[in-house]
C-alpha cells in the first residue's frame, strides 16, 4: 500500500520538471502533471514494478474556464487476489485556446475510447492517439458540448431544433 503522497514524491523525483504540486483538495488529493508529460509519466506509473498501475479507471474532463483539464483515476490491481493495491489521481491542464495533452492510448487500451470521448465532448486533443475522432456525437457535429461556453445549435442538417 503506497499513499498518493508517496507516489507523488516518487514522480517528483523521477520527473522534476514535469510534475507540479500535490493538491490537497477534498475529497480526493491529486497531482498536477504537465500536459506534454502525461504520456511518459503514465508509462512510468504502469511499468514501475512496485507501482504497476494496470487499470485506468476513467479519464474525466473538467472545464476550468481559463484551462481545460483531464483528470486520470488510476488503480493498481492484483490479478491473483482481485484486491486494489493502491490508487492515484492526477490532473493535466491545457490552455483553452490550444488544448493539447499527450495521449496514453498506447499505455492502456481503455484510453483509446475514453480519450475519444473527452475529445468529442470537451475538445481536448490527445497527441499520439492512433485514431482521434468523435465517438458519441456525429462526425459533422460542431463544437464540444461539455464546455461551459457551448451554445446549443439552432438547426442540425436542416432540422429545426428549437
Amino acid at each position: 500500500m503506497v499513499t498518493p503522497r508517496e507516489i507523488h514524491d516518487r514522480l517528483k523525483a523521477q520527473f522534476p520538471d514535469d510534475v507540479g504540486d500535490f493538491v490537497e483538495e477534498p475529497v480526493e488529493f491529486f497531482s498536477e502533471v504537465k500536459p506534454a508529460a502525461v504520456g511518459r509519466v503514465c508509462a512510468f506509473l504502469k511499468e514501475d514494478p512496485e507501482l504497476s498501475f494496470n487499470y485506468l479507471v476513467s479519464i474525466s474532463s473538467v472545464d476550468l474556464t481559463a484551462n481545460l483539464a483531464a483528470v486520470y483515476h488510476l488503480e493498481s490491481m492484483d490479478l491473483e487476489s482481485g484486491r486494489t493495491r493502491h490508487a492515484f489521481v492526477m490532473r493535466a491542464q491545457a490552455p483553452r485556446d490550444n488544448p493539447v495533452i499527450a495521449s496514453v492510448a498506447t499505455v492502456w487500451g481503455t484510453a483509446i475510447w475514453q480519450e475519444r470521448e473527452v475529445y468529442d465532448l470537451m475538445g481536448i486533443t490527445f497527441e499520439g492517439h492512433p485514431d482521434l475522432k468523435r465517438i458519441l456525437t456525429d462526425d459533422d457535429w460542431v463544437g464540444h458540448p461539455l464546455r461551459k461556453d457551448y451554445v446549443f445549435p439552432k438547426t442540425y442538417r436542416g432540422i429545426d431544433l428549437e
Binding site: 485506468l56 490491481m77 490479478l79
Partner: peptide, 19 residues
C-alpha cells in the same frame, strides 16, 4: 488484456480475476 481495456464486473471475474 481485459483489465487493460477497463473490463469490469462479471466479464472480468470470468477471466479469473476475483475483483
Amino acid at each position: 488484456l481485459a483489465l487493460d481495456y477497463g473490463v469490469t464486473g462479471p466479464s472480468l471475474r470470468a477471466s479469473g480475476v476475483p475483483h
